[in-house]
Nucleic acid binder design. Structure first.
Lengths: 296, 296
DNA sequence: TAGATTGTTAATCGATTAACAATC
DNA sequence: TAGATTGTTAATCGATTAACAATC
C-alpha cells in the first residue's frame, strides 16, 4: 500500500524530526518520502524535470557510481555542499559533463551554492537502486570467486552475498569470507528463497554458458560475467562482463604506440607519448625498445 | 637495422617455406615480414588503406581482443576462413560493425570469400602489440592479486608476470602462482631490469595513488587499476580501471527498472523487461517485489 | 559468369563540451 | 544587489548501422 501525501510543514518541525539536514532553504517536501525512508525529499523534487522518468543515458548511468563514491567520501568528511567543479574533479570527469548527467536525474542543485552532499548521495543511491537490498550469488569459487566474496565494496552498497556456489565437490563445503561454499545444485532453491536477481560468474570459460543458462532459468536477470566468454541470454536479461585480459590488451595497444618502434607502420608520435620512450631510454641506456619477438 | 624488401616470389616457394598458409591467391608479399616474423604479409598489405597508420577509434580497439579471442577459437578448430557474419556472431557484435572495425586495420579480407583466420589472428595480434612480450608487475597481493597472478589469460597473450609486489612484510616472502612475493621496495630495480611498462594495482584504495605514483616514477606508463579510486597520472600515462562495485551498481540500476515497483517514479516499463517481473512472480506467488529497505 | 561477401558510404544516433542565461 | 554556480542550449565529435557498389 502506498501513501503519498505532499504538503508544507514548518521548518522547525523538519529540523526537529531530521537532524543534519542542511538543504532546507524552503521547507516544502513530500510526506511520503519521510514515511518511506526517513528522509524528506528536496524542494527541487516539486519541479520535476522534463526528462526524468525515462531514458537516463547509459554513459550517465555508468558514471553515477563514480559520483556516488566521491560524494560518500565528502559525506564522511561532513562536507555539507559541493560545487559541480569540485565534485567533478573528485570523480575524475569534467564539470559540464557532471552537470549534464545530474540534469537527467532532476534539478537537485542550488544555483550559486552547489549540491547538498547528503541529499545527492540519497538521490543517486535511489536512482541506482541501492536503497534496496540486492542478494547476489557467486558461482565458481576459485581464486577470483574468493576475491569477490571478500570484496568489501559489495556489502557497503546494498549487495549481499546470498550464496557461494561451485560444482566441484572438492570445493563444496569449504568456506570463503565466512560463508560456506554450497553445491551448484542448490542454486534453484536459493534463488527462489532469497529472491536472487543478480548472479556473478567466476567459473572457467568452458562452464560459463551452462552456468549462465541455469542462472537465467532460476530467475536471475542480471549477470556479471568474469569468464572470458561471450554469453548468450534471452531478452530481458542484462549481462555485463569484466575481462582482465581485454583490459591488458587495450593497454598494450596504447603502450605499443608510445614506445614507437617499427617506423614503417608507425604513426606520427604524439609529443606527450614520446616522453615515455625517452624516459625509459634515459634510465637504461638503450634506445627504449622492448625485447622484441619480432626483431627489427 | 631494418630490412625491407618487397618483391614477387613464385607461389610454389611460398608454399614450400610456409606451411598452412591459405591466403596466397597472388603470391606477392614483403620479404621483411618473413625475415622478421616468419610470416609473410598478405597481398592486401600492398593496398594500404587510407586510414591505417593513424587513429583507430577507441571503440574499435576495445573490440579487437574480442575478435582475436573468437579467431583463436576458430584457429584451434583449424577453420581456415570465416565470414564477417560468422565471426561477428562468435564475437557477439553485428557484422557491419566488425567490417567497419577491420577496415581501420586494412583490407584483410577477400570479397566473396571472407577472412583468413590465421592471417587475421596475426594481424590483430600485431596491431594490439601482442607479438611482443609485455612484462607486468602486480602490486598488492591480497585475494585479488592472487587471483590475477593465477589468471591464465595473461600468459597466453604475451603478458608475463615479471613480479608480484606487496608492502606488507607478512605477505612478502610467500608465494603465489609459483612466484615469490617481493617487497614493494624492489619495484624500481625490477622495473628497470625487466623493462616493465605495465603495472596492475590490486592494493586497498588508500594505497593506490601512492603505488601509482611510484609505478609512474619507475617508468611504468600503463596502469590497470582494480582499486576503487580515481588515480591521477601525468600526461602520457594510460590508466584503465576495473571496478567490480561499479559494474554491480549498473546492473542494479537496470534490475530496478525491470522489477518496476514504486509506480510514481516508474517509467513506462519496456515489454521485454516486464517479463522478468512476471516470471519471478509466477514462480514465487508474490508480486515480484524485492524485500525493500524502503517499504512501499 | 553468377553468387557471395567485403569495404565504404551516408544517415542516424548518442555522448561530449563550451558557453551562457537563469537564478539562487 | 553582486557574485557564484546551476541547468540547458547548441555545436561538435565519435560510434553505430543499413545499404550497396566493388570485386573476388
Amino acid at each position: 500500500m502506498r501513501v503519498t501525501v505532499r504538503g508544507q510543514i514548518g521548518h522547525h518541525l523538519c529540523a526537529h524530526v531530521h537532524k543534519r539536514i542542511a538543504w532546507l532553504p524552503k521547507p516544502s517536501f513530500t510526506l511520503r518520502s519521510i514515511v518511506a525512508t526517513g528522509r524528506p525529499t528536496h524542494p527541487a523534487d516539486r519541479r520535476r524535470p522534463a526528462n526524468r522518468g525515462r531514458g537516463i543515458p547509459e554513459a550517465t548511468v555508468a558514471r553515477l557510481p563514480l559520483y556516488l563514491r566521491a560524494l560518500t567520501a565528502l559525506s564522511e568528511r561532513s562536507v555539507p555542499t559541493v560545487s559541480s567543479e569540485e565534485l567533478a574533479s573528485a570523480a575524475g570527469v569534467n564539470s559540464a559533463k557532471l552537470r549534464k548527467d545530474f540534469s537527467y536525474l532532476g534539478s537537485y542543485g542550488t544555483r550559486g551554492v552547489g549540491y547538498d552532499v547528503e541529499y545527492l548521495v540519497y538521490q543517486i543511491s535511489r536512482e541506482l537502486g541501492l536503497t534496496q537490498d540486492w542478494p547476489v550469488v557467486i558461482v565458481g569459487i576459485g581464486n577470483l570467486g574468493h576475491a569477490l566474496a571478500n570484496y568489501g565494496g559489495f556489502a557497503s552498497r546494498g549487495f549481499r552475498v546470498a550464496a557461494l556456489l561451485d560444482a566441484d565437490p572438492a570445493v563444496v563445503g569449504s568456506s570463503a569470507a565466512g560463508l560456506p561454499v554450497r553445491h551448484m545444485d542448490e542454486l534453484e532453491q536459493i534463488a527462489e528463497e532469497e529472491q536472487v536477481s543478480i548472479g556473478v560468474i567466476t567459473t572457467p570459460p568452458g562452464a560459463a554458458q551452462q552456468v549462465c543458462d541455469r542462472l537465467v532459468a532460476a530467475g536471475v536477470t542480471s549477470i556479471l560475467n568474469f569468464a572470458p566468454t561471450v554469453l548468450s541470454v534471452p531478452d530481458g536479461v542484462d549481462v555485463r562482463k569484466v575481462d582482465l585480459s581485454i583490459e591488458l590488451q587495450i593497454l598494450a595497444f596504447h603502450e605499443q604506440r608510445k614506445s614507437g618502434e617499427d617506423g614503417a607502420d608507425q604513426p606520427v608520435a604524439a609529443p606527450a607519448k614520446a616522453a615515455a620512450k625517452l624516459r625509459r631510454a634515459a634510465s637504461t641506456g638503450t634506445d627504449g625498445d622492448f625485447p622484441a619477438v619480432m626483431p627489427a
